[in-house]
Nucleic acid binder design. Structure first.
Length: 106
DNA sequence: CACTTGACGAGCT
DNA sequence: TAGCTCGCCAAGT
């Protein structure tokens, strides 16, 4: 397990309830802004090594729920709405309001 | 071992 | 404004 993965999990675990962040923001917080894809890959493995990780709070830069197909049981949208985040058509509403920047607020 | 794919994102055309 | 290209790199075929 690389440090990158561990750091990704560390950050994702700290996303406050009712807030979301982006793959790119996480990558940036780790000092590898161009490796945002790796964050996605990390999330892909996250459910194996860190089953309780709130991956539903991580969306792409436009607030789109691109990873919803990876959620087998509970729908990503349902989880977000349960936390008070408005989601319409896979798009997080008021995205800029609920956005949590790990490099500024961590 | 080589090639493709992908939970991304920024920049260029 | 919309679409294309490239950087990045792990994991699967």
């Amino acid at each position: 397990m690389s440090d990158f993965y561990l750091k990704v999990y560390e950050i994702v675990e700290q996303i406050p309830k009712g807030r979301v962040t982006t793959y790119g923001a996480i990558a940036k917080a780790l000092g590898a802004i161009r490796s945002s894809r790796l964050v996605g890959i990390a999330m892909n493995n996250a459910h194996l090594t860190h089953p309780l990780i709130p991956a539903h709070r991580v969306v792409n830069r436009s607030g789109l729920l691109t990873g919803k197909h990876h959620f087998t049981n509970a729908s990503m949208q349902k989880l977000l709405e349960f936390e008070g985040i408005e989601v319409i058509d896979d798009q997080v509403q008021k995205f800029s309001d609920v956005f949590w920047n790990p490099s500024e607020e961590l």
